[in-house]
Design a protein around this nucleic acid. Structure first.
Length: 294
DNA sequence: TTGCAGGGGTCAA
DNA sequence: TTGACCCCTGCA
């Protein structure tokens, strides 16, 4: 069948999506926006998303999703992979800037995933003063302890926990996942969401500044983590999460000197406008892979 | 082998 | 504006 310009074929419990462009699995899953997609030896990735285990592969413009029906695709994955957005057009628009033109060519297949905002919240609280492999390990442990057990192809997986489970647990039990000093933030933030002191779903209709302020009420959420939550949940795209890597690449490639966080954010908003979030992602990937400013 | 710095920031003083 | 912070890896 046809679906918004893609051709869908369902065979043996998997779905093939034909007509995929501007998509590379390595770049998308390893550009730092997500922590639960693991690469297999054949180049495919297995992830636990939306309470299910799914394996994804991409060859010659054909995306294949296992453990998936046409309804799963149209009802969930199409949005998750942001397949309705014209990334070619975004890259073209950002190409006015030679630095970004180069970065976007380098990370040409990056797509911003629309992830569950609750999972993004907890994952990025864990990212503070931390490294990616350990964030992944901790998220996995959290899921093992507080998530739901899922069996798929003779392997056991665990879904990402409900915030309810994280909000009522003893801190001691939470600390088994080795999140260290961030565990108390996870519990606190989960409690505030559960008690409806903050409504994560209303953020989309708020002004960008108000949405950030709202998120920063949560323990463990400062300006950088708030921007990551907004961007990687598909809530706001005009944010420019500025971590040390982005700071370094901006200083080296744009400012040619040391610059403050506020200065960089102001520049990004002016320079990239509504596409700042996409620009950040191309720059971040470029900086990390090429070790800019290390 | 042991020891120490430092990491996708945030919080508190 | 500055240090501490859990835990762990990398490198003397």
């Amino acid at each position: 069948m046809e679906y918004n310009g893609y051709k869908l074929v369902e065979i043996d419990g998997r779905v093939e999506v034909h007509g995929i462009r501007d998509f590379d699995l390595v770049q998308t899953f390893e550009c730092g926006q997500c922590f639960r997609w693991n690469r297999n030896t054949d180049g495919s990735y297995t992830g636990v998303v939306n309470g299910k285990v799914t394996r994804v592969s991409l060859d010659l413009g054909v995306l294949t999703l296992t453990n998936c029906t046409i309804d799963d695709f149209t009802g969930f994955w199409y949005e998750y992979f942001d397949l309705g957005r014209d990334y070619g057009g975004i890259k073209k628009t950002l190409g006015f800037d030679p630095i970004l033109k180069k970065s976007a060519e380098f990370g040409s297949g990056i797509r911003l995933l629309k992830q569950d905002i609750r999972e993004v919240l907890i994952s990025f609280i864990l990212s503070a003063n931390n490294r990616i492999p350990r964030i992944m390990k901790t998220v996995e442990e959290l899921s093992k302890i507080f998530g739901e057990k899922l069996e798929y192809q003779d392997t056991t997986y665990y879904s990402f926990p409900q915030l309810e489970a994280l909000s009522v647990t003893d801190l001691q039990r939470l600390e088994i996942c080795k999140g260290g000093f961030r565990c108390k933030y996870i519990k606190g933030a989960s409690q505030m969401v559960e008690q409806k002191k903050i409504d994560l779903l209303s953020l989309k209709s708020m002004e960008i500044g108000a949405a950030r302020e709202e998120l920063m009420q949560l323990p463990g959420v400062g300006p950088k983590v708030a921007d990551c939550i907004l961007l990687y949940s598909g809530t706001k795209y005009e944010v420019f999460p500025t971590d040390v890597w982005v700071k370094r690449v901006m200083e080296q490639l744009y400012f040619k000197r040391n610059a403050g966080f506020k200065e960089i954010q102001d520049f990004a908003r002016q320079h990239f406008g509504e596409l700042a979030g996409f620009a950040q992602q191309y720059l971040f990937y470029y900086a990390r892979k090429n070790k800019i400013g290390v």
